[in-house]
Amino acid sequence: MTFIQTDTFTIRGYETDASGRLSVPALMNFMQESANRNAIAYGIGISDLAERGFGWMLMRFRLRMHRYPRYGDTIQVMTYPTFVEKYFIHRDFKVLAQDGTVLADAMSVWLVFSTNKRAMVPLPDFIRELTVPPGIDPLPKLPLKPDFQNSTFQPIDEKQVTVGWLSIDQNQHVNNVAYVQWLFESIDDTMLQTRELAEIDLVYRTESHWNDSLRVQLAPETEDSILHRILSENPQKEVLLARSRWKTSL
């Protein structure tokens, strides 16, 4: 069986930012919900994996914003798997306006971990056997190690975060969208008030959990791009690396 998931969302007030645009965390939550529904249709949802002692973990995610929908707009989110490998499954997303205009797209890479050992495992056979939908035009595969992962990182600012209960998901670790919200909150006021996100590219390196202490750092790369890093305190390790690109608000 093959499935393309299509969900319709009408943007509510609490899903917008201060300018009335759909917020990036809200959009990522829409995407995550559609991915969850698609996984359930394939028989590989969170509960399907949990029964076998596994869980999903997002490893890579790149979101590109072409045009922001606003409060009251109705959008469609489409998602489907594109490639299935030994250790990773790739998934694309498209966000469409009512007239079919592509508002945003995203590429992602997911892995499976053992809930007992909290370590990555090869994709189980019941996942590797799934068939991607025919006739799709997949976006280019995300590199597992993007170029910015090896860039010199000299932070100019750092914020401390203690992981709260509402940042934890059913896999008992921080939800991937929570990290993005923390990245946004670390950016300076002028950038947030005069620019809008054009692209964000994320590398999720390891888990973090309830009550963990995290350090959210940023380092300007160019006038229009920022490098981000999140570190855990105990033990000290990289939790997330990212690059965000910005453009003048329309």
Rank of each mutant, 00 (worst) to 15 (best):
N36V: 14
P146K: 08
V24D: 04
T131D: 13
T2M: 04
D17A: 04
D137I: 14
W182P: 00
R243M: 15
E207R: 01
V203P: 04
L58A: 08
R205I: 07
H173K: 08
I136F: 03
L103E: 00
D157P: 03
F148W: 15
A178C: 15
D212A: 02
K237L: 10
D147A: 13
L166W: 08
I46N: 09
D224T: 13
A178T: 12
L192T: 09
D169N: 11
L202I: 15
T101Q: 10
F9C: 07
R195Y: 11
P146C: 07
T74E: 01
V216L: 09
E196W: 05
L197P: 04
A119F: 11
K247N: 07
A35T: 03
V161P: 01
T101N: 06
P134W: 10
A97Y: 00
D157L: 09
Q170V: 14
T248E: 10
L142R: 03
K237E: 10
D212V: 05
L130S: 02
S167A: 11
W182C: 02
N175H: 14
I11V: 03
L111D: 04
R91I: 09
D125A: 12
I46H: 09
I4F: 09
V203M: 11
L58F: 07
L58D: 04
I127Y: 02
N171V: 11
L218I: 09
T131P: 06
S249K: 11
V239A: 02
E33H: 08
R52G: 06
Q181E: 15
N171E: 10
K94W: 14
D48S: 13
R52V: 10
P138M: 03
G43R: 04
T8E: 14
